[in-house]
């Protein structure tokens, strides 16, 4: 009897979930079309602003996902972003070569990833402390070496993707962006496939959930962890480069301004899943864009309350009030070979 009702419930809940998602999707599309019919410029401005705000969060969240899926807690995303933003900006100042600047940013993120991996895997340092060290050092070192009054030759500009960019509404929003935005969108798909449809992804998740079992089956736990944290670092590096090469176009002290931590929130909100996290980042970006629009229209919601939304939602999600968000089981624990 009991098992039967449970089964029934489960079946029902799956249907509800799908239905809910489909309805939500349709409502969003309908709303966008409705507003687009009323004022096309404003709609595409809001959507573009949503995407611009979301890109560094998406990349930061991907960094978190790769690290945590392999069992390494990374709260140093903020520091990785700041450091990469600084060095790719400086490269741009010195050489004026945007591609080189981008590569330097990615490399910086990767090196800091390696540093975090070394601290937590080799030295078995508490991973939360390791991340805090990266954050403090990034603030200190970039602040120490930064000088005001530097100029660059330019930043990354939009690349319209031929006829695709001419599609009304979708074209200007999705297919007329600077390069890192395209890279971010591709990386979401790439990460989803890598994590859930390849051998590497299976091993990564196994190492994050039960390293002992993975080890028994011949998976090199340390190697998987090192590489995932480094890959994550590249993503955080891209996020940093986005800020200085594409978003703002210059560097300021402490310019990441908590984005690394919102990225952490995005990751949890997206349940450690690349596509869900990207959607979560878009949602946070949309809240931000709406608040700006409302201010233009003269409706004053204090921006601080909109600013709180991502954090409050994350707390609600980790507390399990709305759906359960479960972290990889072996996260934060150094692995010791027997």
């Amino acid at each position: 009897m009991i098992s039967k009702t449970v089964d029934k419930k489960r079946e029902l809940s799956i249907n509800w979930k799908l239905l809910r998602q489909v309805i939500l999707g349709l409502v969003i599309v309908a709303a966008i079309l409705f507003f687009n019919a009323r004022s096309p410029e404003k709609t595409s401005a809001v959507l573009s602003s949503t995407l611009r705000y979301a890109v560094p969060l998406i990349l930061g969240a991907l960094c978190g996902i790769f690290c945590e899926r392999a069992g390494i807690v990374n709260i140093g995303i903020e520091g990785q972003m700041l450091f990469s933003a600084f060095l790719s900006y400086m490269t741009n100042v010195w050489t004026g070569n945007l591609l080189l600047s981008l590569l330097v940013g990615m490399l910086t993120g990767a090196v800091l990833g390696l540093f975090l991996a070394f601290l937590s895997i080799k030295l078995k340092l508490n991973q939360t402390i390791g991340g805090t060290v990266i954050n403090i050092l990034a603030t200190g070192i970039t602040g120490y070496f930064y000088q005001t009054g530097l100029t660059t030759q330019g930043k990354l500009w939009n690349i319209p993707l031929g006829p695709l960019a001419k599609i009304p509404l979708i074209g200007p929003v999705l297919f007329n962006n600077p390069p890192i935005t395209y890279i971010a969108i591709l990386l979401v798909i790439f990460s989803q496939v890598l994590l859930f449809h390849t051998r590497w992804g299976l091993r990564t998740r196994a190492v994050g959930e039960h390293p002992r079992a993975a080890d028994t089956l011949g998976v090199d736990v340390f190697k998987i962890r090192y590489w995932n944290v480094i890959i994550g670092g590249v993503m955080a590096g891209l996020a940093g480069s986005f800020l200085t090469l594409e978003g703002v176009g210059m560097f300021e002290r402490g310019m990441t301004n908590g984005r690394g931590f919102i990225a952490l929130a995005v990751m949890i909100f997206g349940k450690w899943n690349p596509i869900s996290s990207a959607l979560a980042a878009l949602f946070f970006g949309f809240a931000n864009a709406m608040q700006i629009q409302l201010q233009f229209m003269g409706i004053q919601i204090p921006h601080q309350f909109v600013g709180m939304i991502p954090y409050l939602l994350t707390i609600i999600v980790v507390s399990g009030f709305v759906g359960r968000s479960r972290a990889p089981a072996a996260e934060g624990i150094p692995y010791e070979k027997e």
């Binding site: 908590g258 409050l312 707390i315």
Partner: peptide, 21 residues
């Protein structure tokens, strides 16, 4: 609820910043 204090306090730090602002 088992929500880890590292996550919830990091998030609450930003809530506090926004509130005091």
């Amino acid at each position: 609820s088992g929500a880890h204090e590292v996550i919830s306090t990091i998030m609450l730090n930003y809530v506090a910043i926004n509130l005091s602002d």
